[in-house]
Design a protein around this nucleic acid. Structure first.
Length: 419
DNA sequence: TCTGGGGTCCTAGGACCC
DNA sequence: TCTGGGGTCCTAGGACCC
């Protein structure tokens, strides 16, 4: 059996932990630059605010209903996510962190009344973190996902649902929209709709050859999983990323080459930090920048440059300047750049690295140590404590008007209790 | 005026080999 | 008019996830 623990409206719930007066009130959390609503409390959903709605399009609803608005506070969400994880590990040693707000548990070998177990996991998360968590338990990951969605739909389940008898599964699938099944995206829903396939049950009953032909291997796996046959691996140990990307939209268009280079330098620095954290070297890097695609009446540019590192690289002093050079090369005057980013690909483990016959070992070792020093200074004193001149202030060009404090990750922001 | 960011997997088709 | 057969590797693009 697998459990899926899914935090309800995660970012919104995190904000509410430290603002309990907002319980029962509509709240939304915004994307970068305060652009779109990427998380909504149930009350905000009920007001008809769609996922991903641009703030300027929902301003009237927000004002009329006093919706509390927050800029994204990722240090807070990351920390709350780690706390949830710690709770989950008490219920199974095998936890797969699937995303910031979801984790699968492998319950193999655990003897328990799984319905009570699901409810207990949810109750414990609530007690220890004040985050509401929906826990579904079922024979496959896809069915566990469905079970956890049922918890959100039916409060009487008290956050936990165990679904395993074929007749129960059939009953649920017959009412469950195929569009809400994990792995069935918008494109597939369109096709399925034309075929008259509306529910998860309809999908499970399709002939396998049809599914294989129209939805390929992933679609077939989903079908098997709906039939109760596990097909999607449980990944206990987190895999190394195959690519690492840092990109942002800017609050204003950038027309100036040095200013664009400054942003790119900051993205490159952040990429290297992530790359080093997972202990990888990059063989390739791409730097890209483009104009505002929503302004259709202005000239559009979509530029990128690729840089190769034949030896593999994870050195700030190699990667950051290379990114800046690539940015200077791709820059074209007269365009207003709205978004840029840096992505490293073809990553390899630094420990598996074989040095080149012609490399200067002493110099390489010195450089590696220097990057390590940069890492430790920034870990101790905060991001950007030490940085390249070309990074400017180290701040990216963005708007965050509704930022909440970093309650759990910054000393100055820790809530004070008055006695 | 204002429109997110970061990933993975799979497949078809092209390039190339003998 | 006729124009081999069988295979691998790589990449771009599609689809999906949160």
């Amino acid at each position: 059996m697998y459990a899926l623990a899914d935090c309800n409206n995660f970012y919104a719930s995190c904000e509410r932990v430290f603002r309990p007066e907002l319980n029962g009130k509509p709240i939304i959390v915004l994307s970068n630059n305060d652009g779109c609503a990427v998380a909504r409390s149930n009350e905000a959903k009920a007001l008809g605010i769609p996922m991903g709605a641009p703030l300027f399009k929902i301003r009237e609803i927000v004002q009329a209903n006093h919706v509390a608005v927050f800029s994204g506070n990722y240090p807070l969400y990351g920390d709350m996510s780690a706390r949830i994880q710690a709770v989950l590990r008490e219920f199974s040693p095998l936890v797969e962190q699937y995303s910031i707000d979801e984790a699968f548990l492998d319950l193999t070998g655990i003897k328990a009344d799984f319905d009570a177990y699901a409810k207990a996991i949810s109750a414990r998360c609530w007690r220890d973190t004040s985050i509401p968590v929906s826990v579904g338990i079922a024979p496959t990951k896809t069915l566990a996902k469905i079970a956890s969605k049922l918890c959100k739909q039916y409060p009487k389940l008290q956050g936990g649902c165990y679904m395993h008898r074929p007749q129960d599964i059939e009953k649920v699938l017959r009412k469950f929209p195929v569009a809400d099944v994990w792995g069935i995206g918008r494109r597939s829903v369109k096709k399925l709709d034309l075929m008259g396939v509306k529910t998860a049950w309809d999908y499970a009953q399709l002939p396998e050859e049809t599914v294989r032909k129209l939805f390929a291997l992933p679609g077939w796996r989903t079908q098997q999983e709906l039939r109760g046959i596990p097909c999607i691996e449980f990944e206990d140990l987190p895999q190394d990323r195959q690519s690492i990307c840092v990109s942002r939209s800017f609050s204003h268009e950038i027309k100036d080459s040095p200013l664009l280079a400054e942003q790119v330098a900051n993205f490159a620095e952040a990429v290297v930090e992530k790359l080093r954290k997972q202990g990888s070297l990059a063989l390739e890097m791409a730097v890209f920048a483009f104009t505002n695609r929503f302004k259709e009446d202005t000239p559009q540019a979509h530029e990128s440059r690729v840089v190769e590192f034949p030896e593999g690289e994870a050195d700030y002093r190699k990667i950051v300047p290379a990114a800046v050079r690539a940015c200077q090369e791709l820059y074209r005057p007269g365009y207003g750049y709205k978004k840029a980013g840096v992505v490293v690909t073809r990553l390899m483990s630094a420990s598996a690295f074989t040095a080149s016959l012609f490399a200067d070992d002493a110099a390489a070792q010195r450089d590696a140590q220097l990057s390590g020093v940069i890492d430790s200074i920034n870990r101790s004193f905060g991001p950007g404590a030490i940085r390249f001149g070309v990074q400017g202030s180290g701040e990216v060009y963005s708007t965050r008007e509704h930022q909440s404090p970093h309650y759990t990750t910054r000393w100055e922001d820790i809530p004070k209790v008055k006695l």
